[in-house]
């Protein structure tokens, strides 16, 4: 009886602690452990299609025809909430959205808009971008998913 109980105790304990153990490893590691960083942005951009980013968007279907209504709404949002750091056609504080879909998947773009904190700290491309842009973090402007989708549609018109 006692032995059984002890076993159950230990199981409980392991279950409750396993998450913590892993976490400690990740933050407590010594610098050499940072070999997970890809070498260059150019390198990962070559096969960008496999990077969907981290966030709420897992799949985006782009219709062949651009929705003018959606793009117009997206432009209004972009001008109000994004243009302080992004010029449409050239590098500014952050990169230019023109032709972004030749470098990133639509899912990645929307996740970057919706979940930038996690994207710059965990996503392989996001981490490299943070360094490339001198540590300027992408600001979370609290767009809804629909708004982010409109902004993406606007990017297709650039």
């Amino acid at each position: 009886m006692i032995r059984q109980t002890t076993m159950i105790f230990l199981l409980y304990l392991m279950a409750s602690c396993s998450g913590g153990g892993e976490k400690t490893e990740a933050t407590g590691g010594i610098p050499g452990a940072r070999t997970d960083l890809p070498k260059t942005l150019a390198e990962v951009e070559k096969d960008f299609a496999s990077f969907k980013g981290i966030g709420p968007v897992t799949s985006v279907t782009l219709e062949e025809a651009i929705s003018e209504e959606m793009a117009a709404a997206g432009k209004v949002i972009f001008d109000a909430k994004c243009s302080a750091c992004h010029k449409t056609d050239k590098r500014f504080i952050g990169p230019e959205p023109k032709n972004v879909l030749s470098r990133r998947t639509p899912e990645w773009v929307m996740n970057m808009i919706l979940n930038p904190e996690e994207m710059v700290s965990k996503d392989p491309i996001g981490k490299l971008l943070l360094v490339e842009y001198n540590g300027s973090p992408m600001a979370n402007q609290n767009l809804t998913q629909d708004e982010a989708r409109s902004v993406l549609e606007y990017f297709r018109t650039l």
Binding site: F9, Y12, L13, S16, C17, G19, G20, K23, T27
Partner: peptide
């Protein structure tokens, strides 16, 4: 109780 304590003391989320 044990579970609660262990959770809160071990989880390094």
């Amino acid at each position: 109780v044990l579970f609660t304590v262990a959770m809160s003391s071990c989880n390094t989320g």
